[in-house]
């Protein structure tokens, strides 16, 4: 019985890892110009329309940025150059992705820190909780409780 479980688990693990490997192999980074331009537009916020990105917005300025992104991509500019150019023209807040350096990087660091710290805290808490009172049931307990529960 137990033996069979191990075999089944092994099969499941094998199938899952193969599936995951196949899945990650099939996924490719943006290759064509159109895909690159799409990525840039999707991660750039329209400066006048409150939270919509350039790809989705139909504001004129979004259309202008879209056209320029296409143009710059076909000129062979790198993503970073295009983003920097747009940030210069419209302010840093056109980029939907916060920077990795400077004070902006805190938005990446703080949550990860909190995650690690709270997991650490939980591990400590587990250790502390485990040293709880022993709760072995005694016959005395049962009699007390059954006498309590009788009236209800």
């Amino acid at each position: 019985m137990k033996q069979r479980h191990w075999i089944s688990w092994f099969c499941i693990a094998l199938v899952s890892s193969l599936a995951l490997v196949a899945a990650s192999v099939a996924d490719d980074p943006p290759a064509t110009e159109a895909e690159r331009a799409y990525e840039i537009k999707a991660t750039m916020l329209c400066p006048v329309c409150d939270g919509q990105n350039v790809l989705e917005s139909n504001a004129p300025v979004a259309a202008a940025i879209r056209a320029q992104v296409d143009e710059l991509v076909s000129e062979g500019r790198s993503d970073a150059e295009i983003r920097a150019w747009m940030a210069r023209q419209y302010g840093k807040d056109v980029n939907a992705n916060p920077p990795r350096t400077g004070i902006g990087s805190l938005i990446w660091i703080v949550p990860v820190f909190v995650a690690v710290a709270s997991t650490g805290f939980l591990v400590f808490a587990f250790r502390k909780w485990r040293v709880g009172r022993g709760s072995e049931l005694s016959d005395d307990d049962v009699t007390i409780v059954s006498s309590l529960r009788e009236p209800t």
């Binding site: 991660t43 916020l45 807040d93 939907a96 916060p98 902006g104 938005i107 990446w108």
Partner: peptide
């Protein structure tokens, strides 16, 4: 974005990629 603006006046955006 509000916090960063309060600290150094920078205008940042936090969008879907984040």
């Amino acid at each position: 974005p509000l916090i960063v603006e309060a600290i150094n006046g920078d205008q940042l955006a936090v969008g879907r990629p984040y």
